[in-house]
Write a protein that binds this DNA or RNA. Structure first.
Length: 341
DNA sequence: CGTTTTTGACCTGCGC
DNA sequence: GCGCAGGTCAAAAACG
């Protein structure tokens, strides 16, 4: 479609807002957690991106490996949560922000107050097979069809693939970390700094809105994302990222090249640097804060971390309701449980 | 001409 | 085992 096709690095869409993730990490198959989140709000300019915190607190950005670059923009609100089975949970809500560390173009966008949403995650098996799947599918579908024996090579390949599949199945492949976030926006394609190629679209049960599947266009990068609208609130876009980027986002590269002054924290992992702006700057809640009563002390001090605290406070009074059913609930079934008594 | 989107078909997992 | 729903593939079309 439009050129940015799916997402164009570093560009801002006038209507977008990043939202926050809720992230799940399926690794180990455990399960997930919940999250809740919030409401619309807005935190003005903060700075930049962030590292999620200390060692044990990895931001979703970190998880993704780079996930987002929000250099993009955003106007809308975000609502989201992310989770990581291990010890972190992140949630967010969001809205617009000012300039990020990355500089880029953003100007501050006014934010509009919006809704409240909550989420929880259940990832489960839903997507975990993907990585492996890819190979599988390639093999399976096609090969079966072609198996007529056109060519030995083809057959051999097939066989190999099949074997690989079998092995993988047995091995039980690790699940890719995932995180999702809700964004209140008219636009479905969030500008997250990476380039995505759409590889499928599917109608979703109980929802008039189709779900789109995207893959990172970078070579060897297996990150995928799914984008769909909440059927209950069409203005809410649910974006789910899966996997971690193994490269810098085009936007991040650009920003770094231009700025060249970012603190190490930002530059280190590709992902983090990319997050520098929108997302982090908006609201981001650390999991422990959500689930535990102990205040979280960021191990790494950075603007973002501090920001989390402030934001969190701001949000405590929010009322979380999760209007969505179906899709969202699938992702976030227990959202309500996370709410504070 | 290269890249991305569209879209129908196929595959897989899950519940009944 | 069957049907359903989700996810992916890949040919064709569209786009720049």
């Amino acid at each position: 479609m439009s050129d940015g096709k799916s997402t164009n690095p570093g560009r801002c869409d006038p209507n977008f807002g990043p939202s926050f993730p809720f992230f799940f990490d399926d690794n180990q198959g455990s399960s997930m957690c919940n999250i809740s989140v919030g409401h619309q709000d807005y935190f003005g300019g903060g700075g930049g991106g962030g590292s999620g915190g200390g060692a044990s607190y990895m931001s979703f950005a970190g998880y993704l490996g780079g996930g987002f670059d929000a250099s993009a923009c955003s106007p809308s609100d975000v609502i989201s949560a992310s989770i990581d089975q291990q010890d972190h949970v992140t949630v967010a809500g969001s809205s617009s922000l000012g300039k990020g560390a990355a500089g880029e173009t953003s100007e501050s966008h006014p934010v509009s107050p919006n809704s409240s949403i909550s989420a929880s995650s259940s990832n489960e098996a839903t997507m975990t097979e993907e990585d492996v799947d890819k190979g599988k599918k390639e093999t399976s579908g096609k090969n079966q069809q072609e198996g007529c024996g056109d060519d030995h090579e083809a057959q051999e390949k097939l066989t190999k693939k099949v074997d690989e599949k079998a092995n993988k199945k047995k091995e039980k492949r690790p699940k890719e970390p995932r995180f999702a976030f809700l964004t209140k926006s008219d636009i479905e394609n969030l500008e997250d700094g990476y380039r995505w190629r759409k590889y499928g679209q599917k109608a979703v049960k109980n929802s008039p809105h189709p779900r789109s599947y995207y893959r990172c266009t970078s070579q060897k990068c297996t990150v995928k994302k799914r984008v769909e609208r909440s059927f209950q609130d069409p203005s809410v876009v649910i974006t789910t990222y899966e996997g971690r980027h193994n490269h810098l986002s085009p936007a991040a590269l650009r920003a770094n090249a231009t700025i060249g002054m970012l603190p190490p924290t930002f530059l280190m992992p590709p992902p983090l640097s990319s997050f520098g702006h929108n997302i982090f700057t908006h609201e981001y809640f650390m999991g422990d804060q959500l689930f535990a009563s102990t205040p979280h002390e960021p191990q790494v001090h950075d603007p973002v971390s501090s920001m989390f605290h402030r934001k969190l406070e701001a949000r405590q009074d929010s009322e979380f309701q999760f209007p969505d059913h179906g899709l969202l609930q699938d992702m976030i079934p227990s959202f309500q449980n996370t709410q504070q008594p």
